[in-house]
Amino acid sequence: MSAADPVGSLSRRRLLVGAGALGLLSACGGGGGGSTTAPPPAPGAPGAFPLTVEHSKGATEIASAPQRVVTVGFSDQDPVLAMGVRPVAVTDWYGDHPHATWPWAQDELGDAQPAVLNRGAFTGTPDYRYEEIAALAPDLIVGLYTSMDDTQFQTLSRIAPTVGPPAGYPEWGAPWQEYTRLAGRALGAPERAEELIAGIDAQLAATRAAHPEFAGRTAVVAERFEPGSSFVRSPGDPRSQLVTALGFTIPPEIVEVAGELDGGTLSDERMALLDRDVLIWNTGFSPEVRAQVEAAPLYSQLQVVRDGRAVFVDDPLVSAAWTWGTVLSLPTVIDALAGQLAGALA
């Protein structure tokens, strides 16, 4: 993923930790702007704390209901807000929205004004600015949709108790349900997490029932970041996860291209691998690439294209909600995506 390609492969870059990162905590610089006053008390269930949360970096003890939560994952503000907790700081991913919070989460944000870390500085590699984080005086750091090595986790944990990504999944590859559950456990609201998950699962089940034609059909989720190649999403990527939740399957050949990452690059000479029951292009972040896709020499020869079964998700909000794939964004995209796919298969 690059700054110019905000939804490209996060996993293709390895994280580098600067020498002496552990020493940064001795000097605290200014925060990322915005409000640093304590938000209303966290709505954890009575008696929920103290608690211990397990994650990919180990186990973290949280002594009391957090009052000053900082999120360092690219989409972590969504599951945290969904639990009724307003962070004092969030991390910018992409898009120019108030407080790095997209429209689908603005109601949950309310009048809070969290500081924004890394505003406009997205490169595809997490950049934990320890001095800025420490200056916010957090009592909990949440890093779910991110990558975090042991040194980074230890450094963050010296600032405040830190919850890392879900255990048992590749980087960036946990289902949205697991990010939601982990946020719920960390914030003392596991029942709230399960209620929200059940609501979206019910919406997905109703959509599958309304569209039995989706069942068992093959689909490929593709994006375009540079001329001459496409990027195909693995089954573990949030975009593909939603497609499979609607009833489609991701072909094994695409799984091989992606490997253990969130996706893989496919040269235009291999475009035949895109010829499936439906081909879904995520282009809302850069609608102009559609012309580039359609100009590729082999593209017009694909049967899926000739039959009109290629779909371009070019609405910026729908595309972003699909890309984020969170407990708050998914309700925005399910019906819109299902409608486009039904039209393509009609």
Rank of each mutant, 00 (worst) to 15 (best):
I254L: 09
A272W: 15
L156N: 04
V311S: 01
V116E: 02
S35G: 13
A21P: 07
I133T: 07
L22N: 10
G168P: 12
A115R: 06
E294S: 02
P41H: 12
L298G: 11
G124I: 06
Q301H: 13
D268F: 14
A21M: 12
R158I: 01
G236Y: 08
I62L: 08
G216I: 12
P43R: 10
A4D: 15
Y128E: 05
L328I: 09
E194V: 10
G263Y: 01
A346R: 15
A19I: 13
A45W: 05
E213D: 10
M148H: 06
P175S: 09
D78M: 07
P297I: 08
R192A: 11
P43N: 13
R129Y: 14
L16D: 14
S64I: 08
H211T: 03
A183R: 06
W102E: 15
D275P: 07
N282M: 05
R276T: 03
L266F: 05
G84W: 05
V243W: 03
A89R: 11
L156E: 01
A189M: 12
T37S: 14
T60N: 10
A115P: 03
D277Q: 05
L51P: 04
T162C: 03
G164H: 00
G325I: 04
L196Y: 04
R290A: 01
S147D: 06
L317E: 00
A346S: 15
R68D: 04
I280G: 01
Q113A: 15
V70G: 00
D201C: 12
L204H: 07
G188W: 00
A338N: 04
Q67L: 14
Y130M: 06
T283E: 00
A65E: 11
D307N: 12
V293R: 03
G325P: 01
A63S: 12
R224P: 03
I280T: 04
I62P: 00
L317P: 04
A19V: 13
G308E: 08
G124M: 11
T91M: 02
R306F: 07
F153C: 10
V142Q: 03
E131Q: 11
G228F: 03
G18D: 15
W281V: 02
P138S: 02
L279Y: 03
Q340A: 06
G34N: 07
V221R: 04
A320T: 09
R192S: 07
G308C: 08
L242T: 03
V90H: 03
D139A: 06
T265R: 15
A63P: 05
Q152C: 13
G263Q: 02
T101H: 08
E194N: 13
P287T: 09
I280M: 05
L51T: 09
A186P: 04
N282D: 02
H97D: 15
L330T: 04
H99T: 12
R208M: 00
